Simulated assay, not measured.
Amino acid sequence: MAGAWLLGTEADAARAPAKAVLVAVREEEDAGAPGTELSLAELRRLADTDGLDIVEQVVQVRGRPDPATYVGSGKADELAATALRADADLVIADGELSPRQARTLEERVGVRVVDRTALILDIFAQHARSSEGRLQVELAQIAYQLPRLRGQGQALSRVGGGRVAGGAGIGVRGPGEMRLETQRRKLRQRAGSLRRRVAELAKRRERTRDRRARNRVPSVAITGYTNAGKSALLNRLAGARAGSADVLFATLDPTVRRIDAEGATLTVTDTVGFVRHLPHQLVDAFGSTLEEVRHADLVLHVADASAPDALDQITTVHGVLHEIDAGEVPELLVLNKTDIAPPEWVAALRRAHPEAVPVSALTGDGVEELRNRLAAWAGSHHR
């Protein structure tokens, strides 16, 4: 169920399911490219994860997004007719809209308009379970909302009043620059308070890492594209049930487990999955959590071998790892879901990445080889 932060009010969020229209702008040379359809398919998965019912899809081919309406004036009218015909509750753009684009398009279409970033933030708000996760999500939402305050007084009540921690709704609808400045000040104050609380939790996690280092326990961080099967693989390595939720961003809060790999003991941390165009607000807000990756002795990069764009997903993950200063951490690539991946796809991935370990977290195939590789690494790491 899409949350109040995305839809606008608690009453809106209570309706099931909300109807959404997807819209994308593609340059002419990219209009027929596989990446275009894959990006829209991923947006559809994101919307489905957030409990939305996708009723229509509109693609505009033009040189570049229109600075005022994103899709252009004529297409905006067509989009308005589509939303009206489908009785849609909101429109979701496959990209990040500027405040001006979102505001103008919303006026033209007549329903709430959000972008990919807002959708991902809403999913994170839904899935964060720990207090730290909720704090970090709210911090990311505030960072996203601050530049979008002007002309969106109603939207202000979503920050701090939807799924995220923080309690009181701090946006009160009202005219005038003075009211806007008051709202900005309250949001900045709230953000400052959140950063201090997140920093305190980060220090606590740092002390835990220091204890592990003193005890010479090798640390492994599982990372990868969202829904690649990271949690299922961790469960399999730990001897627990291998199944996990088949949704995007099922894991937001780090889970640390000790596992034995052929006599070697190591800690394995499950971390948040990455995605194309991961909002920079989230990367910043989750900085303390992502330190688990930066400070790991090894990154266990899990890729979905059954994904048609697996190579692109691997590249996306490498980009995020460099963005969070974890690009130099040693990496072991794991090709998961080989039980459902076409053999020729797995073979192509292994040609591109000869050191990768093919596994199936679901069936257990290849997991023993992975254990052996981890044991060999742990032994050489602590000689």
Rank of each mutant, 00 (worst) to 15 (best):
Q145A: 15
Q145L: 11
Q145W: 03
L146A: 03
L146N: 04
P147E: 08
R148V: 13
R148A: 12
L149E: 04
R150M: 10
G151E: 04
G151T: 01
G153C: 03
A155P: 05
A155M: 08
A155S: 14
A155E: 00
L156M: 11
L156D: 01
S157M: 04
R158G: 13
V159E: 00
V159S: 03
V159A: 06
V159P: 01
G160R: 01
G160A: 12
R163F: 11
V164Y: 04
A165W: 05
G166D: 02
G166K: 01
G166F: 00
I170L: 15
G171Y: 01
G171S: 08
G171L: 07
R173M: 13
G174N: 08
G174P: 07
G176E: 09
G176L: 11
E177K: 04
M178H: 11
R179Q: 11
R179N: 13
R179A: 13
L180I: 06
E181A: 02
E181G: 00
T182M: 10
R184E: 05
R184T: 00
R185T: 03
K186Y: 10
K186F: 04
L187N: 01
R190F: 06
R190K: 15
A191Q: 14
G192P: 06
S193I: 09
S193A: 14
S193G: 15
R196Y: 10
R197P: 00
V198M: 13
V198H: 00
A199M: 08
A199V: 07
A199H: 15
L201F: 11
L201T: 09
A202I: 10
A202F: 05
A202T: 12
K203V: 10
R205E: 05
R205N: 09
E206R: 14
R209Q: 12
D210I: 15
R212C: 12
A213H: 15
R214Y: 08
R216L: 12
R216A: 13
V217W: 02
P218W: 01
S219Y: 05
I222C: 05
T223N: 07
T223D: 05
Y225N: 03
T226W: 09
A228C: 08
A228I: 05
A228V: 06
K230M: 08
K230I: 04
K230T: 05
K230E: 00
